[in-house]
C-alpha cells in the first residue's frame, strides 16, 4: 500500500461564523456537545435522581432550562430532554451515559444541530420577526422548541439579550441567513 498519511480535521458547520450586525453578534458555537436523554415510561424519578447525583442538575421545567457545572438541560418533549455542554472530544454520549446509567436512553446529537449564540440590543426585535413566541416574556433560562422561517428550531435564553438558537445542521446556512436577515431588518 502506498505510504499515505491522511489527517482528518473537523470543520465547524458554518466555518466558525462570526457576524457583527450593528451592535449585535451572531457567533457559531462549535464547542458544544448535545446529547438527548429519552425518559422511559414511568422513569421520571430515576432520571431526576441520575441528573442530580451526576451533575447536581434538576430536571428542567417544560419551558425553563436548568444549569449546573456548565451543563444545561433543556426539555424537548414530555419524555425527553437534551443536555448541552462544552466538550471537545467525540465521546459526549458515553460521558452522559456513564452518569445516566440505566435510567434513560441517550443519543449523541452533536452533529445534528447547528448552534448560534446571538446577543445585542436588537436581539429581541430580531427574534420577534423570526419566531411566533413572546420571547420578551421568557424567564431566565427560558427554552422552547418552535419554528423560525419554516425551519424547526430550539431557542434558549442565556442572560439579558443573549440567546442560543439551534436548528438542523442540514440547513445551517439557511438558518444563519434567516437570523442574519432578521437582524438586518431591525438595524436598518
Amino acid at each position: 500500500m502506498a505510504d499515505l498519511d491522511f489527517t482528518l480535521t473537523a470543520t465547524p458547520l458554518l466555518g466558525g461564523a462570526k457576524h457583527q450586525i450593528g451592535e449585535n453578534q451572531i457567533v457559531e458555537r462549535d464547542d458544544l456537545a448535545l446529547v438527548s436523554v429519552a425518559i422511559p415510561l414511568g422513569g421520571d424519578a430515576a432520571v431526576a435522581k441520575a441528573l442530580k447525583s451526576g451533575w447536581g442538575l434538576t430536571v428542567p421545567e417544560p419551558t425553563v432550562s436548568s444549569v449546573a457545572q456548565d451543563i444545561r438541560a433543556i426539555r424537548t418533549g414530555p419524555d425527553q430532554l437534551i443536555l448541552v455542554f462544552p466538550h471537545t472530544t467525540p465521546d459526549a454520549r458515553a460521558f452522559v451515559q456513564a452518569k445516566i446509567g440505566e435510567a434513560g436512553y441517550t443519543t449523541d446529537q452533536t452533529d445534528v444541530w447547528v448552534v448560534l449564540e446571538i446577543s445585542g440590543s436588537d436581539t429581541l426585535a430580531a427574534l420577534e420577526r423570526l419566531c411566533p413566541l413572546d420571547v420578551a416574556r421568557f424567564a431566565k433560562g427560558g427554552s422552547a422548541r418552535t419554528v423560525m422561517e419554516h425551519m424547526g428550531a430550539m431557542i434558549v435564553h442565556l442572560s439579558g439579550d443573549r440567546f442560543l438558537l439551534l436548528s438542523a445542521s442540514s440547513s445551517a446556512q439557511s438558518f444563519l441567513h434567516a437570523v442574519e436577515l432578521s437582524y438586518r431588518y431591525v438595524t436598518g
Binding site: T63, P132, L133, A144, T146, V147
Partner: peptide, 10 residues
Amino acid sequence: PLLGPRDAAE
C-alpha cells in the same frame, strides 16, 4: 397544557 399559549402555526 405544558407549554402555555402557542401559535396554531406550530
